[in-house]
Every structure is written in structure tokens, then in C-alpha cells.
Design a protein around this nucleic acid. Structure first.
Length: 639
RNA sequence: GCCAAUGUAGCUCAGGGGUAGAGCACUUCCAUGGUAAGGAAGGGGUCGUAGGUUCAAAUCCUAUCAUUGGCUCCA
């Protein structure tokens, strides 16, 4: 007999060789029907794999992340089976579950997969799923495994096998398809009821761009057709929030082939929002002791030789700008820190000046690869809400707290609450990768960790993700389609002060090297804007929105009155415009609702008589009549 | 940069070897309308760009640029 401990602490006894399915059955038949896999002592297992010792168990269903992962991983195998049936000789790379579905990297040789093929594969998958084939786990020796894939001529699986130890290798077979796989899998294919292959993409084998590019097939499956439909509807809804679409519709920004790809052009409405964001941040920074500076868009080549960027990124960047003078070269600045280092070096500095916090909305240019450009999220020219803090190691933690407080204030003001702070530390196995003494790194990493604890941030720690010059903290946030982007960042830097030979005079009258913190709460105005658009679906908070109200006269007889109201509201810094087109009232309301103007003020005979407006809130409908002072009061409650 | 797809009017899209279509937007006129599309008329495109095939190319081919989905990269 074995003891099985359930998540609630209950211990049940079973015969040796019982399965998670048996455990589920002992609880209820319904649960047994829904169990997809189980976590056994922390490891995910097939629901029908025999258990031979005392274990702690969690049963995974569709509602659990691990359950979905099992479902989707099995779906990937089903995809492979279908593809092998349709295109014999296809070679397979890896086929894992991901956050939303699964993919399989395949090599179809000379044949190129087309979207039409996906439809055929889907149909085949459904057909195979209905066969209710069991996923059969088998432990194999390495020699057996190698023989199997040599027979199949699948060099990818053979390469994967090289890294596996004999005795730990398992195969899974369902129907006619056998794959090298750790598992776990569903009991059989019949749970997979709804299938959608989403897209095709190229993907380098093992993520290495020097290796062969395979075809990646992305797909998603569900236990119910209805869930697939809901998922697709959700995707459609998400697309409506896409900042590229809304940016065009709301006339916030544009791109021009003539100006160049990846170079965003901010239109008047977008610029208004951008400037309000900047003014807000400036005010917050002023409270926290920052001084604004302004530096040129280019810098002498020598600046970047000093900073080390020339050697590291020279060839992959915008190329140097020549001058009439021979051998003189300037670079478009890819970051602001070298300029700011020169500001620090401008004159002798005393420890009494530290921490020195200098800030700039600095526009930088980076030659991103053409395939990487993405709306406002990934561009070649963008403005960082940059600042550099020069301080002593002892001041690091307080400065970190100061920056964290600022970042928190900024994100809260925008209503962003679903973000992750990633602490990036050294790779403990690779200490030579990093510049600076171990003591300094210890101090900086401790400062970050302590500071994030004090402000109670939701953090994840990533070892080995630190920059070579120092540890960092990045704020990650998702766009409408669930893609993760880095917004704000805080980075400790020991390298640049060293390279620029920055010094301050300490209380001991000796020279000391400062530490530098790079930080940008928004990250860049462009990327921040893209996320802001997607999170608000274009319904910006009232303080940010370019047009807070629209006055809609019922007929053009009331245009003069509207102008009067507009002027009265302007006195209270309430901004908007008059829709004096000769259209029907219904039409004007519809148009302005679609433009997402927050407050619609309808004005006709009655309103003119009572010096009032009839208020309608975007998306909410009629809110009744307000006289002007009351409306101003009401407006203030919304801000 | 790599793989794949797409590129037709300001926008969304249909069409497809025989000289270009819809809806919305725009202009003008009529209507002066009370809470999500009033009516009529009109203007607007060398079908991304450059070559090629053809009697004839927006349509087929090649190259190129841009965009989209991924991969790689990301100071």
C-alpha cells in the first residue's frame, strides 16, 4: 500500500501501482473525467502512470495551468502525427506547450507549408483525435532511441538525444506517431475537441541564427468547441485595442515610408498626450531632486570610443555621420548616458553634491533589425525619459528606493497594476562576464533586492540576466495580445564611471569613483504610449486626453452659445471643441462616441434658455442636464 | 537580418490577362434635425515601386520597398 497526500492534507491509501486517475476516481467520477495530468511530488506526470511510493499529489484539470500545458503538449504531438500522415518524411524539432497553445518546429524539406496546408492538417488532427488513441509511455535505452531516429533520419531528435542520459529517456506513442518526449500526456486524444492552427513562422533550430531555420506551426486546442470560439472572439477584441490601429484611427501618430521605417511621427493629438505625460513626470522628478538637462542628438565618435559602445555596436548601428573635415565622424546617439557622464565631468565634484540626478527626455536612434520593428513598441528613433543618478555605493539603496517610489507613482497614475518587476542578477557560474569588483556587485544586488522588498513589489529574479556592467530591475507589462514588453528600467552601472574616469572628492579629500544608476520609469515615450493605448483601448484618462469634451449643438442656431460655453470652460482649463458640422444630432453623437471623446455636451433650445448643457458620457449614455458651474464641479470630481 | 503572408481610393475591403469597384470618409446642395449612421449629387486610384513576359499586365514572373505574424537580436 502507498500513502497519497492530497493538497488539503488528506492522506489516502492505495495499492502500489495506482494512478492519479485512480486517486481522482476515489474522489468523484466527474473529477476523473476531467483530470489531464497530475503533479506528483512536484513533477508533472501522466494521469495514468503507476505510482509506486508514498507521494504528495495535485490533480490537474483544464482549469490548472499545468493541466492546460499537458493538454497542449499532447496537442502538439497530435499535430505532428497529422503532419507526418500528410507529409511523410517530415522531421521534427521541438513541440512544447506555451502560454496560449503550443507549437511544433518542423522541417518539411523542399516543401513549403502554406496556410491551406494548415486547414488540411487541422482536419486530419480532428480525425485522429476522434480515434481516441492512447498516449503510451515507454522507457527506452539511448541506443534504442538513436536507432529509432536514425531509421527515421531525423537529425534533430538525434541531436536532442545527444544531451540526454541513458536511463532517463522516454518515448510516447499515440496512433502511428512516436516521439522522444519527457511527457506528460493526456490519457488519450479524445479530449481534444476543438483545434485551430494559428500561424506559420520561421524559427531557428535551437534558437541559433547560424543554424537551420525550421517552420514553426502555432496552434491552440480546447476541450470544447465553444471555448475555441470564445478564444477567437477574445483575439478579435484584443485586435481592436491594438495601438497601431487606434493610433491611426485617433490620429495620434503615423509612419511614412519617405521618412523611413521605424521612425514614428507624432501627430498633434498624440503629441498633446506625450507632453502631458512628460509634464507629469517632470513634476514628480522635481519633487525628488532631479535637474533637467538637454544634450545634442549626435556625439563625436570619440565619445562612443570612450564609452565602449563604438567597439561593441558600431557595425550594427546607424553609420557615422561624416563632416567636410577628413576623419571627423559623429554618431547619432544610441543612448544619453555618455553625454550625461560628460556633464558630471564638467567640473570637479564634491561628495556633498551626491547624489547628482540629471534628467532628460533624450531622443536616441538605434538601428533595430527590420524584422523587429513593431508599431510604437519597437522603433529606430525614440525618446527615453532618461535620467542618470551619480552616487556613492552607500547611497545606492536609498536612490533605488527613490526611483522605485517614482516608478510606482507613475504606474499607479496610469492605472497599470498588472506588471512584473524582474530583478536581473549575475550568472553565478560565469563571473568573468562582468565588469567591476565582486564587492561592488554584492552591494548593488543587495541594494536592489532590499529596496524591492521594502516597497513590496511583485518581483521575479533572473540570474544571468544582468547587463555586463551591473544588475538591473526591469518592469515588464503585456500588450493587448499578451506579448510582454519592457517599460521602465533601473540599472546600476559601474562601467561608465570607470571608462569616463569620473571622480568626486570625498570627505577624506581623496578622489573616489561614483556609481551610476540609469533609470527610465516610462522606458520610452513611444513604447509607453503603445501600452497606454492598448490598456485604455484609446479611452485615455481625462487628464491626458487631448479633447475632454465635445459640444454638440442640436442645430446650427446654437453654435454661438456653444462658443460661449467653450470659452467659459476654457477658463477652468477644461478643453474641447464644437462639432458644428451640419449633421443630425444622432450622427454627431455617434461620430464622437467612436472618437472616444469622454464628455459629450448636447445643447439645444432648453439648454440655451437655462445656461446649461445636457451631459452624455462616452460609452455610458445620457446623464441629464447640468448648468455650467455644476458641470465644472462635476468635471473636477472626474479628474 | 532570417522564414512566411500581405500591399487596389483617406479608411476597411471586393475583384482579377482586355484599359478599375463597394461601404465609410471628403465636397456641394437640400433638410435645422433632441441622445449611436437624414437625403441627393459630385470629386478622388498610372492597383507599393522598378524591370520582364505578352498584341494587351492592376492581374503572370523577377527584383525591391513597406507592413503583418514569428525567429534571432535588443545599449
Amino acid at each position: 500500500m502507498i500513502n497519497v497526500t492530497l493538497p488539503d492534507g488528506t492522506v489516502k491509501q492505495f495499492d502500489k501501482g495506482a494512478t492519479a486517475m485512480d486517486v481522482a476516481m476515489s474522489i468523484s467520477e466527474g473529477l476523473a473525467r476531467n483530470v489531464l495530468s497530475a503533479n506528483i511530488n512536484g513533477e508533472t506526470w501522466d494521469a495514468n502512470r503507476p505510482i509506486n511510493e508514498d507521494v504528495t499529489i495535485t490533480l490537474n484539470t483544464w482549469r490548472d495551468k499545468d493541466g492546460k500545458a499537458t493538454f497542449w503538449h499532447s496537442s502538439a504531438h497530435l499535430l505532428a502525427e497529422a503532419l507526418e500522415a500528410i507529409m511523410p518524411g517530415t522531421k521534427f524539432g521541438i513541440g512544447p506547450a506555451i502560454d496560449n497553445g503550443f507549437y511544433y518546429d518542423v522541417d518539411t524539406g523542399d516543401k513549403t507549408l502554406t496556410p491551406d496546408d494548415l486547414t488540411k492538417i487541422e482536419a486530419k488532427m480532428l480525425e485522429l483525435a476522434r480515434e481516441k488513441n492512447q498516449f503510451v509511455r515507454k522507457e527506452v535505452s539511448k541506443a534504442e532511441a538513436i536507432a529509432f531516429f536514425e531509421e527515421k533520419n531525423d537529425e534533430y531528435k538525434l541531436e536532442l538525444l545527444e544531451d540526454l542520459e541513458d536511463g532517463t529517456i522516454t518515448f510516447y506513442t499515440q496512433g502511428n506517431f512516436t516521439d522522444l518526449c519527457r511527457g506528460p500526456h493526456l490519457a488519450d486524444t479524445s479530449n481534444i475537441k476543438a483545434i485551430k492552427l494559428m500561424s506559420l513562422a520561421g524559427a531557428y533550430w535551437r534558437g541559433d541564427e547560424t543554424r537551420k531555420q525550421m517552420t514553426r506551426i502555432y496552434g491552440i486546442t480546447f476541450p470544447k468547441q465553444k471555448e475555441l470560439k470564445e478564444y477567437l472572439v477574445m483575439l478579435e477584441e484584443a485586435k481592436k485595442r491594438d495601438h497601431r490601429k487606434l493610433g491611426k484611427e485617433l490620429e495620434l501618430f503615423m509612419f511614412s515610408e519617405k521618412v523611413g521605417s521605424g521612425l514614428p511621427i507624432w501627430l498633434p493629438k498624440g503629441t498633446q498626450i506625450r507632453e502631458r505625460l512628460q509634464n507629469f513626470l517632470k513634476a514628480e522628478q522635481e519633487k525628488r531632486g532631479y535637474k533637467m538637462v538637454a544634450t545634442p542628438h549626435i556625439g563625436h565618435k570619440n565619445l562612443y570610443i570612450t564609452s565602449g559602445h563604438y567597439a561593441k555596436y558600431g557595425e550594427d548601428s546607424f553609420q557615422p555621420i561624416q563632416t567636410p573635415r577628413e576623419d571627423e565622424e559623429f554618431l547619432l546617439k544610441p543612448m544619453n548616458c555618455p553625454h550625461h557622464c560628460e556633464i558630471f565631468a564638467n567640473r570637479p565634484r564634491s561628495y556633498k553634491e551626491l547624489p547628482l540626478r540629471i534628467a532628460e527626455f533624450g531622443t536616441v536612434y538605434r538601428y533595430e533589425q527590420s524584422g523587429e520593428l513593431h508599431g510604437l513598441s519597437r522603433v529606430r528613433g525614440f525618446t527615453q525619459d532618461d535620467a542618470h543618478i551619480f552616487c556613492t555605493t552607500d547611497q545606492l539603496k536609498d536612490e533605488f528606493l527613490n526611483v522605485l517610489d517614482l516608478t510606482k507613482t507613475v504606474l499607479a497614475k496610469m492605472g497599470f497594476d498588472d506588471y512584473t518587476a524582474q530583478i536581473s542578477l549575475r550568472d553565478p557560474n560565469n563571473p568573468d562576464k562582468y565588469i567591476g569588483s565582486a564587492e561592488n556587485w554584492d552591494a548593488a544586488e543587495a541594494a536592489i533586492i532590499d529596496a524591492t522588498k521594502e516597497v513590496d513589489f511583485k518581483t521575479i529574479t533572473a540570474y544571468g540576466e544582468a547587463a555586463f556592467y551591473g544588475p538591473k530591475l526591469d518592469f515588464m507589462i503585456k500588450d493587448a495580445l499578451g506579448r510582454s514588453w519592457q517599460l521602465g528600467t533601473i540599472q546600476v552601472d559601474y562601467n561608465l564611471p570607470e571608462r569616463f574616469e569620473l571622480e568626486y572628492t570625498g570627505s577624506d579629500n581623496a578622489g573616489h569613483r561614483p556609481v551610476m544608476i540609469h533609470r527610465a520609469p516610462f522606458g520610452s515615450m513611444e513604447r509607453f504610449m503603445s501600452i497606454l493605448i492598448e490598456h485604455t483601448a484609446g479611452k485615455f484618462p481625462l487628464w491626458l486626453t487631448p479633447e475632454q469634451f465635445v459640444l454638440i449643438p442640436v442645430s446650427d442656431r446654437f453654435n454661438d452659445y456653444c462658443r460661449d460655453v467653450e470659452a467659459q470652460l476654457a477658463l477652468h482649463d477644461i478643453r474641447g471643441f464644437i462639432d458644428d458640422r451640419s449633421e443630425t444630432i444622432g450622427k454627431k453623437i455617434r461620430d464622437n462616441e467612436l472618437k472616444k471623446i469622454p464628455l459629450l455636451l448636447i445643447v439645444g433650445e432648453k439648454e440655451v434658455a437655462a445656461n446649461s448643457v445636457a451631459l452624455r458620457i462616452q460609452g455610458e449614455g445620457d446623464k441629464g442636464v447640468y448648468d455650467i458651474p455644476n458641470f465644472v464641479e462635476f468635471f473636477k470630481t472626474l479628474m
